[in-house]
Nucleic acid binder design. Structure first.
Length: 414
RNA sequence: AGACAGGUGGCCGAGUGGUCGAAGGCGCACGCCUGGAACGCGUGUGUAGGGAAACCUACCGAGAGUUCGAAUCUCUUCCUGUCUGCCA
């Protein structure tokens, strides 16, 4: 949630910043109005309630002293109906404000580049030269099937489209990658955490998936539980409603989970292969920091993911997302795109975001700083999507005969 | 899943309709005491919103209700414990 006080204080700046994220100015205007309306309703209610409390005390004293309470009761009853009225107004205003504010995305950082779509993202740097092939590199689904690593048909049979099954070396590579990534992150100070794959509504609101993106989530019938779309959701919300000690920050966590996404708006995109699946594996990085620490931790997380790709000898580039391509909760994001020789292009394999205090405000994650409670900063990033990493390995390490020579760092994991 | 018992401040724990944001204790902070410490004594010690401030409002798991007035009464719900059932 954005800072409503900031909105009140500097409407133009907030409005301007949000327009870079394609938020309509009238929406922000409405937000400001609702906020004012709520304050008015609230102060009316509180004034009436204060009078009621005072008179109720009187009432008690009268009773004790045996005085006549009939007249006081009439005044109280009249005031009570006022209170009910004001309270209704307050609740109405609150509901309206909530409905609006929970659907407003985060304000991008000042230095986020202008732009509408991923075409306007800015390339920061490239790491490792793509290898030269003296044959035409194949796409990963061809290699996966040829090597018997992935079975696309049987996944569809037991579930539905966009589900697949890994076999033999495919399954083992998956497991090896997960272990390798977790160990890699652990060595860089991230604590390994294993979390639930089902979470409640409150938790998804905390990180910003709800209320706006319910269509993208798998929901358990008859329960208020959803399958997580990323480990970011349970990991970040581990500390919801908590006030942490500043000295205990930053909290650095890494966790492996399956991720589940409906891919509601992606009909027809990446239908072939394992780039876009309803279920995929991912190792995630999450950090909870003080406001001063978050920038440095962000850089650290980006470096961690880039180094991981480096260790796997996968050529990639770092892209800073423009305002229009930024996700709902993010103030700044750097995507890591891995080189796929089969597709002859760079594809997103990791996305690292600083949400600043946006999620912390929703999830009420705070820390004590010299007796004062401050909103924490939360950051998240994939330490690589496992499926896409397998795609990248297959395409980059393929030989002319379709066989695959795996990167040597994985030797001890296979 | 069924039966019973509970959910109160950082922690323990009192409070069954009024002046209770909540006794008492522990912990913590500051001061006194001391050569220094312990002990002892004193003061203070939740969160959120509004206000320049005085101060006001809300919060005793959550939500709704009864009442002039609810931590206290009623209903719903969530969570925890114990026993029974089921199960990796």
């Amino acid at each position: 949630m954005i800072d409503l006080k900031l909105l009140q204080k500097d409407f133009d700046a907030v409005s301007m910043a949000l327009s870079r994220k394609k938020v309509d100015a009238t929406l922000i205007e409405a937000l400001k109005e609702k906020n004012e309306a709520l304050k008015t309703a609230k102060s009316s209610y509180e004034r009436a309630q204060a009078a009621q409390n005072e008179m109720s005390k009187q009432f008690g004293l009268y009773k004790k002293e045996g005085k006549d309470t009939a007249q006081l009761k009439t005044t109280l009853d009249a005031n009570k109906s006022q209170i009910t009225l004001f309270l209704d107004q307050q609740r109405e205003a609150e509901a309206a404000l909530d409905a609006l504010s929970m659907n407003i995305p985060n304000i991008p950082d000042a230095d986020v580049p202008e732009g509408q779509s991923d075409e306007d993202n800015v390339e920061l740097r490239r790491v490792l030269e793509p290898r030269h092939f003296d044959f035409t590199p194949k796409e990963h689904w061809e290699l996966a099937e040829q090597n018997g690593w992935i079975d696309f048909e049987r996944g569809v049979k037991v579930a539905k489209s966009r589900f697949s099954v890994s076999y033999d070396m495919g399954a083992r590579l998956e497991r090896a990658l997960i272990n390798f990534m977790l160990d890699f992150n652990r060595a860089r100070g991230f604590t390994e955490v294993s979390v639930p794959s089902l979470v409640n509504r409150r938790t998804l609101e905390g990180t910003g998936q709800l209320p706006k993106f319910e269509d993208d989530l798998f929901k358990i019938e008859g329960e208020e539980l959803f399958l997580i779309p990323t480990a970011e959701v349970p990991l970040t919300n581990l500390y919801q409603d908590e006030i942490l000690e500043a000295e205990s920050l930053p909290l650095l966590m890494t966790g492996y989970t399956s991720c589940f996404r409906k891919e509601a708006g992606s009909a027809g995109r990446d239908t072939r292969g394992m780039i876009r699946q309803h279920q995929f594996h991912k190792v995630e990085l999450v950090a909870i920091t003080t406001q001063e620490q978050s920038e440095a931790v962000f850089v650290q997380m980006v470096q961690c993911a880039s180094d991981l790709l480096g260790a796997l000898e996968l050529p990639h580039r770092l892209m800073q997302l423009c305002g229009g391509d930024l996700g709902f909760s993010a103030a700044r994001t750097i995507d890591l795109e891995v080189w796929l020789p089969g597709q002859n292009c760079y594809r997103e394999i990791s996305s690292i975001s600083n949400t600043r205090d946006f999620q912390a405000r929703r999830a009420r994650i705070r820390y004590k700083d010299g007796g004062k409670n401050m909103l924490a900063h939360t950051l998240n990033g994939s330490s690589l999507a496992v499926g896409r990493t397998m795609v990248a390995i297959m395409e980059n390490f393929q030989n002319g005969d379709g066989s695959i020579t795996l990167p040597s760092v994985l030797n001890s994991y296979l």
